[in-house]
């Protein structure tokens, strides 16, 4: 999985590419934890180019959301598609998290 990070004015934008599974998901957790430690609390995660997410990936998304709650942080999800979107839907994650069609729409909410 490729993780591209852009630091905007309102949020840290994280774009994911490839496959988020039990091997690759911990890297995302590590990188976002690094930003949280530096005081960042607003994240947009763009899933446009993510082809696959397993429950290990969902677990990391949930861990980040839990970590941001007590610091009044936000994690917005954008550009879900294909099987990744399907996995979010059947796992009930679409009602649990804030999800937007595009990165621009997500950034407007910040």
């Amino acid at each position: 999985m490729e993780i591209v990070i852009g630091k905007g004015e309102k949020a840290v934008v994280v774009s994911l590419k490839g496959r988020m599974d039990a091997v690759t998901a911990p890297e995302l957790e590590k990188q976002i934890n690094g930003f949280i430690k530096e005081g960042e609390s607003c994240f947009v995660i763009n899933f446009e180019n993510l082809e696959y997410i397993s429950s290990a990936g969902l677990r990391v998304v949930l861990v980040i959301a839990k970590k941001l709650k007590p610091v009044n942080g936000q994690m917005l999800i954008s550009n879900l598609k294909g099987v990744v979107k399907e996995v979010f839907e059947i796992s009930g994650f679409t009602s649990l998290l804030q999800i937007y069609e595009t990165e621009e729409e997500a950034l407007k909410q910040m």
Binding site: S55, L58, R59, L62, A65, K66, K69, I90, S91, G92, L96, L97
Partner: peptide
């Protein structure tokens, strides 16, 4: 069976393996 309805505080990602199998 997995928990598919709790909010962020309560939710754990467990039991999804079985759920994915059935789906």
């Amino acid at each position: 069976e997995p928990d598919l309805i709790s909010d962020i505080d309560e939710r754990e990602v467990g039991g999804l393996g079985l759920f994915f199998m059935k789906q």
